[in-house]
């Protein structure tokens, strides 16, 4: 096969960094959560690639776990977003800065 594992891992790295940039640069909380999902998926891709490389099941199980945890995390994250911004004027991550020192 001419597609070696390095390509997959590199692709994963690219996706990770795109997600990272999204987290840092966007102010809509929903978009931020979506960027976090991107990062999760990048990790999943890397896991699956290595799992294929060593022909080992454990990687798949790990991906399964990651998906589950990501789902749970998204659920709770969205619940927080909903409760915080339910009656707010702006939907802006910068507005929830009441913990400033």
């Amino acid at each position: 096969m001419s597609v070696d594992i390095g390509d997959y891992v590199g692709l994963s790295a690219v996706m990770l960094c795109i997600g990272l940039a999204g987290v840092l640069l966007r102010r809509n909380p929903l978009i931020v959560l979506m960027s976090i999902e991107l990062m999760f998926n990048a990790a999943n891709l890397a896991l699956v690639a290595f799992s294929r490389e060593w022909v080992n099941n454990a990687g798949h199980i790990f991906v399964f776990l990651v998906v589950t945890v990501a789902a749970a995390e998204v659920a709770i994250g969205l619940a927080i977003v909903v409760s915080v911004f339910r009656r707010a004027q702006n939907v802006d991550v910068d507005e929830v800065a009441s913990m400033r020192g």
Partner: peptide, 17 residues
């Protein structure tokens, strides 16, 4: 150091990154 605690999530995220 007080300036570091802006309360802004993005700033904290930047620090983490």
């Amino acid at each position: 150091f007080r300036a570091l605690q802006s309360g802004l999530v993005r700033a904290y995220a930047l620090t983490i990154v």
